[in-house]
Design a protein around this nucleic acid. Sequence first.
DNA 1: CGACCTATTGAAAGCTATCAACTGGGGTGG
DNA 2: CCACCCCAGTTGATAGCTTTCAATAGGTCG
Lengths: 214, 214
Amino acid sequence: MRQIIEERTGSFSRSPQLVEAPAANLRVAAHTTVLHEGDPARRIMEVVEGAVMLTKLLPDGRRQVVELLGPGDVFGLAHDEAYACSAETLTPSVISTHERSALERDPVLAARLLRRFEAQLCVMHSHALVLGRMSALERVAFFLLRLMPEGMVGGATLHLSMTRQEIADFLGLTLETVSRAFSELKRRGLVALLRADEVRIQDRGSMRRLAGAA
Amino acid sequence: MRQIIEERTGSFSRSPQLVEAPAANLRVAAHTTVLHEGDPARRIMEVVEGAVMLTKLLPDGRRQVVELLGPGDVFGLAHDEAYACSAETLTPSVISTHERSALERDPVLAARLLRRFEAQLCVMHSHALVLGRMSALERVAFFLLRLMPEGMVGGATLHLSMTRQEIADFLGLTLETVSRAFSELKRRGLVALLRADEVRIQDRGSMRRLAGAA
DNA sequence: CGACCTATTGAAAGCTATCAACTGGGGTGG
DNA sequence: CCACCCCAGTTGATAGCTTTCAATAGGTCG
């Protein structure tokens, strides 16, 4: 299941003494596991391009997608020197990595990560509200709005790069419930489904109301 | 509903030009709302002593306690220049506050907050797993273990400084379900309830197993 | 064109929420 | 000092939503 990471860091690659270069960049294919929950946490990473999901597992196999990341977002966080989540690309991505010790030496990097952590923490707070207090329909509406950049006009269609199972694991639902929610949103005319992974938001106002105007 | 903040910052207090003092400390009574979701986010805060909960509201009044904070934890995060959560003390607390601009001027502060943000983000990831994938009984077990410091021996009793409603809002349940879960844990002999807010963990192993060994 | 994987839809079961009644402890006031 | 009141918590019955199990449809790739 683990796929190979395609590494293209140019002249910096594979030189241990160059880990503190501004950024060691990795180009990674879609559906690649970049790091594994529990592995020793040596490096901290930023998404440069693409989309990455962070997941956690329960001993019995239940999975939660805890965070969806886009350009600028940071991952590879450590709890007790080990990665707290697995990270998997959803699309072809570019990821830059830093030695953890660079945080202390590089104030510019530290300042950037600080700002980003604050933003990600706020997003997690919203997600706790979604997971703890919203119905299935509301969760899916919230999810679609979150993926749809503000400036996106009505005509544009959104490509979901996640399966129903991945969306379900993100929203704390089952894949069947997610599918039913999509169908219900379609039935109500709030979204149009061109294909299973091509969505268009038809009635943004109603969607916002469903998602709690968040 | 809003309670008055009792301010005792000694000689630094109420001097606008001293906001960048090492720490403007507030001593706050229990059950005091320190800041309100949506208010302009001027300052960033740290818990020095006590316990604080961060909450978010849906337009229809549904509430989620998104984070429980103890000494060292940071709050007062901003989304679009406004506080993303309300913050309320659970116990008498001491809170230190900083101007947001201090983050850029004070590298020591920034480094401390960076480390703390990382830890809090990891905790939020765990909480997403709890909210998204755990049953009511598992959630309550997880909650109790989280409150029970590792070193705490069997004999010690834990004082819950939260009502059933607050615990429910933290775990994404109703107060009745939380109460039933407590009763079930008691019935199974995993915990003892001396009073409604005095708990003793009797069988830590079983509790860990329930909580997914997290 | 067929195989396979993902998504959709249906029916039934299960868990939690909701509504409601009751209990108990603490504090207040007589 | 005791009785009563009030609020938090507990417990019960029922409803509702989501999950589970199962079968069907759709799309993609060989």
